[in-house]
Write a protein that binds this DNA or RNA. Sequence first.
DNA 1: TTCCTTATTGAAAATTATTTTCAATAAGGA
DNA 2: TCCTTATTGAAAATAATTTTCAATAAGGAA
Lengths: 140, 140
Amino acid sequence: MELQEKLHNKGLRLTYPRREVVAILNAAASPLTPQSIYQRSVERKSDIGLVSVYRTLELLSELDLVRRVHGHDGCHGYVLASPGHHHHLVCRKCGKAVEFSGSADLSDFIAKIQKETSYKIDEHILQLYGICPKCQKERH
Amino acid sequence: MELQEKLHNKGLRLTYPRREVVAILNAAASPLTPQSIYQRSVERKSDIGLVSVYRTLELLSELDLVRRVHGHDGCHGYVLASPGHHHHLVCRKCGKAVEFSGSADLSDFIAKIQKETSYKIDEHILQLYGICPKCQKERH
DNA sequence: TTCCTTATTGAAAATTATTTTCAATAAGGA
DNA sequence: TCCTTATTGAAAATAATTTTCAATAAGGAA
Ligand SMILES: [Mn+2]
Ligand SMILES: [Mn+2]
Ligand SMILES: [Zn+2]
Ligand SMILES: [Zn+2]
């Protein structure tokens, strides 16, 4: 479902700051923190406030239009969520993230853990880290 | 390898604050943030500073004696790392976390993604969320 | 044990990140 | 075009994290 539509369903408005945050995330290759989103909005000379970045990310999270991606060291950033369930593979050098799917491959495994632990499992995070093709080529 | 030993290898010292942080993590059922570790140290009346909690967690991370666990919403906390590679299953109600292993079950899947993306994958996070047996029983 | 050396500590200050408040603004239906 | 009210952003308030630095205490050497 589209941003426009989801907002409308809830009586919310499609505003300039919201468009901007989405546009910035859309143009990004790697997960962005609220701060870095704000930075980019300054560079773009779109005059949106940092507060709106925070508020918009919270909203987009609720609408499931944005996803949190955890850095293998520090903390998380946000990426635009393409429809459906996905996971992320992040380059440890340049941060470039790509999506992949494949919950199917996990479901047996998860079912096994569920049986073993008696937890009722309903959600998961799977994130892979490595070096992207481009960074593999560069010396150092 | 033991904390004592790992510290010694690096010319570092086994101090009271470090012992305390480990003891607190050891007694915890769920991932703790620096702040909550500090809280508990106050309750225990061990007089360690918040700064030392931060520093100790950083150190223990380097020594791989502590692991970061990401909440499915907010951010991460720390748990003591038992030796070997492990994952965590966290209760969304009470926060209780249990470990499970099983990288073997993932390796084929990861190899597939590696081939598809041309990333060189060398690390991963897998975290499961659900409701623990105890919380399943409670009404509400 | 006692004596050094130096890693470590913690209080305080500095920085950074996040949330709250609130009057002014603008989205968008009527 | 005109309302209603969701939304914005500046500023202030809070919270989280990092840096500084003089005082302290591990723990090896004597
Ligand atoms: Mn995190
Ligand atoms: Mn999945
Ligand atoms: Zn890269
Ligand atoms: Zn529980």
